[in-house]
Design a binder for these strands. Structure first.
Lengths: 342, 342
DNA sequence: TTGTACGCGTTATCAT
DNA sequence: ATGATAACGCGTACAA
């Protein structure tokens, strides 16, 4: 019952008395086969349970349908949402996606890119615009279609779609200034680990500085940038700081909610005793008793746009090298009302 | 400056006046090359920037280092945590992982498995034990190492590591009975979509039935099984139900927190007016003002164990076909204290 | 220890 | 519209 012999193009051809080339053409749906022959071939292929050998195909053609996607992490919904946005486009265009998580290590990303190239990848998606030193030049030399997503730059490796994180930080900072805050703190991860977070902090810094606030107290914490870390780091901020901050900004909304919980737990009233702000407007924000003041990033749209552009790029179309998705401040209930509209 | 010519085994051999085979052997680190030759070859390979062609390698050897991992979704931390648990083992063993998300579609999973086989995958990881009808027999015929993870069964396709979701539901149900609850509700997704959730509900049902409670009111909701859906569905449960439940169990802790928020918002006191329970003990539970009563699943351990076993299986070792990771009830503050220890 | 011949399954090229 | 031939880059099997 079990058919041990692998059925390939050769076997199908033999069955019908046709050459391998006709079979290959029919199977790939390219020109050069009569309608009858094609139909016959497809029938036999289905009946015999033919499956293409992708390795052979890729070796012979020097092409593949593989798109490699490098992400720092899958926690905290941001990257899964970007992925979800990309999926339909890649599926429709017939590409297979290979996801890797780098855990924010540029070295790991660079290694992984090489392995994807070893597989003859058709294109790459990298997170952010900060990579291992040689990677940029290498990908340019190879001329492999590469999408940098999530962050922005004027001069991407190839093409990019993302948000301006400095601007996002600046927007939030300006709003908080307008709310009357002037003793800001920031809770995040070690510097250099998440470059986007670093940029948001820079934007915040500029806004607060020009607004006449005191220097931002920065609290950094290892581990997953989520609820628990947000809570723990908040303890650090409130205890260790020389002056108690009047508002704490967090790397993202999950950390912010952790901080909000902590404040509530120790009896601090939010927003009266202290303000809380996050980034990204994550799903959880829709159901919190106190909605968090945050900056909206359109992650699904970003993924969809990025995938569409990368596919076009692979197909040789000329497209915008840089697409910037706008961010928007979203006032919540964890900060005081702004004195006047910013 | 740019070296257009792809450097392969042939080029390295030519450079040193050696045959391709010696180069191949040295590069793969197998026996049969003198130390000097090997060293020379490795040096030249590095200098010339040699990169192995994975497709050619896989085609010639009929092997690959690819492990395909099929997951229903990347949202809600469960599967990212399982992935994180598998990572170190697969990395060390030199395997590349290809992740696909099926969005709970068995058909999509089956299609994707075929594509992985087209790439000559060394092994597969599938989520759960419920798959498309023919998939099971197909993988057995092919004898491809396959790990089923997250759920349990006595007769896996090949090997399995997971938790007993029926038992998890039963544990929770028994505890809630001991707390005095007898008008239970369950909030989840449409039946058949998440088979593990279905099993947890079955376990709950058995426990409540034997405990003399009324039938479980079931509320199902489309979309991402997370905060927002949990909140929305709770509204449905409380309005539409003929009798108001005294405890609501949710598919997972994220939905449970959504429900908790909703109850608080409409002025219901938890746990005095109504009890709330979840599943999985997700990270968020560590920082909630009211910790959720839940059932602990050890997802990192599960991933690590599964990966270890799959690698052993690929290497031909004989291992346990079924590994069951125990679950444990974790009493929180969203339910009444149990009358006596269960 | 090293080398030779051949095949993996498919596609490109150039014929007919 | 169809076919013959030669790659693609590497590994297996066997020989020297």
């Amino acid at each position: 019952m079990s058919r041990k012999a692998p059925v390939g193009i050769k076997e199908i051809g033999a069955e019908l008395g046709l050459s391998m080339m006709s079979v290959s053409r029919a199977l790939r749906g390219v020109e050069g086969v009569s309608v009858d022959t094609r139909e016959a071939i497809l029938n036999v292929a289905k009946r015999m349970g033919y499956r293409p050998n992708r390795n052979a195909r890729s070796l012979a053609s020097a092409h593949s349908t593989l798109i490699g996607i490098s992400l720092p992490t899958l926690f905290s919904d941001v990257f899964p949402e970007i992925l979800a946005g990309m999926r339909a486009t890649f599926d429709h265009a017939g590409f297979d996606t290979v996801i890797d998580t780098t855990d924010y290590s540029p070295a790991r990303e660079a290694d992984w890119v090489e392995r994807m190239l070893d597989w003859n990848a058709a294109g790459l998606v990298l997170s952010g615009v900060d990579h291992a030193p040689e990677l940029r030049q290498r990908l340019r030399d190879l001329q492999i279609p590469t999408l940098e997503i999530w962050d922005t730059t004027d001069d991407p490796i190839d093409i990019s779609v993302g948000v301006d994180h400095y601007e996002a930080g600046f927007q939030l900072g300006q709003h908080l200034i307008a709310c009357g805050y002037n003793r800001p703190a920031f809770v995040g991860v070690p510097e250099g680990r998440d470059r986007r977070a670093d940029k948001r902090l820079e934007g915040l810094g500029t806004a607060f500085r020009t607004g006449g606030a005191s220097n931002i107290i920065v609290q950094r914490i290892e581990g997953r940038a989520a609820f628990e870390a947000g809570s723990a780091a908040t303890g650090g901020v409130l205890c260790a700081a020389p002056v108690r901050p009047d508002v704490i900004c967090y790397l993202n909304d999950h950390m912010a909610f952790g901080g909000l919980s902590y404040c509530t737990k120790i009896g601090l009233a939010v927003p009266d005793d202290i303000g809380i702000a996050g980034f990204n407007d994550l799903e959880i924000n829709k159901i919190l008793p106190l909605s968090i003041t945050t900056v909206v990033t359109q992650r699904h749209l970003m993924g969809a746009t990025g995938a569409k552009n990368l596919v076009a790029r692979i197909n040789g179309a000329v497209i915008d090298r840089c697409v910037r998705i706008p961010t928007r401040l979203k006032e919540g209930q964890t900060t005081l009302r702004a004195a006047r509209k910013t």
